[in-house]
Design a protein around this nucleic acid. Structure first.
Length: 108
RNA sequence: UGAGACGACCAGACAAUCGCGCCAGCCAAUGGCAGGUGAGGAAAGUCCGGGCUCCACAGGGUAAGGUGCCAGGUAACACCUGGGAGGCGUGAGCCUACGGCCAGUGCAACAGAGAGUAUACCGCCGGUUUGUUCGCAAGCCGGUAAGGGUGAAAGGGUGCGGUAAGAGCGCACCGCGCUUCUGGUAACAGAAGCGGCAGGGUAAACCCCACCUGGAGCAAGACCAAAUAGGGGAACAUAAUGUGCGACCCGCACUGUUCCCGGGUAGGUUGCUUGAGGCAGAUGGUGACAUCUGUCCCAGAUGAAUGAUUGUCCGCGACAGAACCCGGCUUAUGGUCGUCUCAACCU
């Protein structure tokens, strides 16, 4: 996603799941495929290189799972304490979030 | 071997698979295939300097800010190079905001007798009076800046002469100041002569002197342009309706339709990477650097591209992510190599 309007729609209407230093918001969309948005706050991850790496990991993880999602917009938010986690922990946290998200949108 | 000084360089390597940004190519028609390329030495802090863009601009002055030994380099600099002076270090080397308190103003707690026209507390010395155990003691009048003491700092230092005791009072050397000469582009250095010891410190205190500087920044600026108030112009209709000016007509303004112009929000395009460019060689220069020749094209995103998985190896990988572009400075940080210094030991 690259429009401010898309983001504010997700923030207003999204379903929320949290944990592992991340919060994931989801809402259905009309573009015909899942979309990803990232909001990694400088306040939570101070170094620019670490923020970039974090975003790459989230994108890669999303790429590997995108076939299992229905047509939804996903926004991944950073939470305080994210800076202390290593990449393996972040991978694991993302796996858990994706499972939750897939389950939510299958039920509805 | 240990402890240092200086300079240069590197920033895990190779391979496979799946992905991402940009560039162009082929098949061919919105898909597929193959290829090239893709973060740093600090990309960081945003502290200086310049390019570029827009705005302003006759010239001069003032204000404000900056720079501050000399010469050179450079597009420019607060940077770099070479040199001078001062300081630190045994040394290799390193550091320096290194113009002017005889233009003016200000500042300095406490201590101390006295702190800027120096000063007499204890001392030292002379004279005199009194006392006297005849050694001297006390009082008074003077001389003195050697010694003590206070202080961050006491108005040149050392030695000799001199004297009642002393004193640049005199002399020698050192320091300081002035003049001349010599060397050097210069900063400055050296020598000779003269003066006769003063005008204490502080200018990243105000200030003075010399020199430099217009302002804002790529969210600069340029172009395209939905939507929406509203603006300007032209044509048509005044056959008909309404409002205002007016007693009424003409007329004018509003109103109606069409077209054009301008404006510019959301959004998009551009600026955007060929450049004070890299590499190699030659020449000039102590050097910073410059010139010439050859050769190469090396990120350009815009919610922002470099990741994941696996294998092999090693010393098991620090600090850290471009956002208009360059030159510096500063800070963070893992390692490798070379030259040099000092100490101890061995030959």
């Amino acid at each position: 996603m690259n429009r401010p309007g898309d983001f504010s729609r997700v923030f207003r209407q999204g379903k929320r799941t949290g944990g592992g230093g991340l919060t994931v918001l989801t809402v259905d969309n009309s573009v015909g495929h899942p979309r990803l948005g990232l909001a990694i706050a400088k306040k939570h991850v101070k170094l620019a290189s670490r923020r970039n790496r974090l975003k790459r990991i989230i994108r890669e993880s999303f790429r590997q799972h995108q076939s299992s999602f229905s047509n939804i917009d996903i926004v991944v938010l950073s939470r305080p304490g994210l800076d202390q986690l290593d990449s393996a922990q972040i991978w694991a946290a993302l796996e858990r979030h994706w499972l939750t998200v897939v389950a939510q949108w299958q039920n509805s």
